[in-house]
Design a protein around this nucleic acid. Structure first.
Lengths: 222, 222
DNA sequence: TAGATTGTTAATCGATTAACAATC
DNA sequence: TAGATTGTTAATCGATTAACAATC
């Protein structure tokens, strides 16, 4: 392995941004870019960009920079995007429906095969061409259809139970939208989307900015 | 001000988690907790917990710990949650509808007043009791209704234009779900929700875990 | 008072930035 | 070859952890 022991998650969480900007550049027909030019676009320092990328290999060339298409490709591979993931959404509520209908995920290789719910009213129906299966049948569905990812959009009270079922069924990863910390064995990857937390952080900074403006005003009136 | 100059965003992004755990404890009837006990629940070190909280004041008491209810209350204030924010969702697609129907936001003081869209087909209709207004009327709506937050759920191509309109209309913050970096003046707070990025990170770690398991298997067979 | 636990300072660790030799 | 720009090492900065005196 030419890869270093382990790359910090701080770095990993920056990779999607590189990926996105390089895709954009590629679409625009840009062929090469230096860490300096990329720095100005993306807002990281050139030094950081070079450090980040060198965690995974020397993708650049001295005196030239980086080939946009190649680098984008490498990033796709690093992120594990050169394949298709099968997914199931558990919880056919509003969020679950929205996610299962979002075309953007399929475009990048995440295929939502079905939704699952406990509500007998919706079980058996179709939502945007996707079947809603019975939660009781989830386990067998996951095994038969080779589902890799479970997407949890159920209320927080049910989230752990759903996660347990997913783990038993053998999914590799869980994308969790429920606002709780879920316990899973080490070999199952969990990625949380904390909508509430994000909103709270927004709230914090709005409050801070209001305070700042208030102080500024007072300063002036003195 | 007894508050330090500026608290790092690293700390700020941990606050919602404290808030959540303390709420849980409070609901369970727990009255007091030490940084050590909280550490075991929440997974941060006791030292970090004390450091974090002391950015905002000495909420604890030597020999006793922290009063759960009081601390939770303080955190609410710090996060700016002791008030109501009015919000509008721009983009009445699936995600926009899901967000505007999610009760959890209103419960914590974020009131979604309406949706806005350009599609004349949906403009004028109601989605979950919320009016869909014409994007052209957004500016006046925001001013009349004292909207603080704009929630962007439009496709990435339109996101900047929507943001510009929101800024002109005087919103204080933008909650952006479009997968682009939006430019706004400094006094407007922007908080991004990067669903794609989150999914990519999940993908990365699934791939890594697969590699790990593969290596383990090879090791054994040697 | 004795025991517990904070608030805070100091030490360590990790991440970012700077610098520059290597090299295309 | 000369100029540009990487890959990488060293320096700096910031965040986390450890330690302990202050104090309830």
């Amino acid at each position: 392995m030419d890869r270093k022991d382990k790359v910090s998650t701080t770095v990993i969480r920056r990779l999607p941004k590189y990926h996105r900007y390089l895709e954009e550049l590629h679409e625009k027909g840009v062929e090469r870019i230096s860490s300096n030019e990329l720095s100005q676009l993306i807002g990281f320092t050139a030094s950081q960009i070079r450090q980040d990328l060198n965690n995974f290999g020397g993708f650049g060339q001295q005196g030239y920079g980086y080939n946009v298409k190649d680098l984008q490709n490498e990033l796709s591979k690093i992120l594990g995007l050169n394949r298709v993931y099968n997914a199931v959404v558990i919880g056919a509520g509003n969020l679950g429906q929205a996610l299962s209908n979002y075309k953007g995920f399929e475009d990048v290789g995440f295929k939502i095969l079905a939704l699952a719910d406990v509500d007998k009213e919706v079980v058996g129906t179709e939502i945007h061409d996707k079947k809603v299966i019975d939660f009781d049948d989830l386990k067998s569905f996951i095994k038969e259809q080779d589902v890799h990812i479970g997407i949890i959009t159920v209320p927080k009270e049910q989230a752990q139970k759903v996660a347990d079922t997913l783990v038993e069924s053998g999914v590799k990863g869980i994308w969790n939208f429920a606002p709780v910390d879920i316990e899973v064995p080490n070999h199952v990857i969990i990625e949380n989307v904390r909508l509430n937390d994000s909103l709270f952080v927004l709230s914090y900074f709005i409050k801070e900015e209001e305070l700042r403006q208030e102080m500024e005003r007072r300063q002036k009136n003195k």
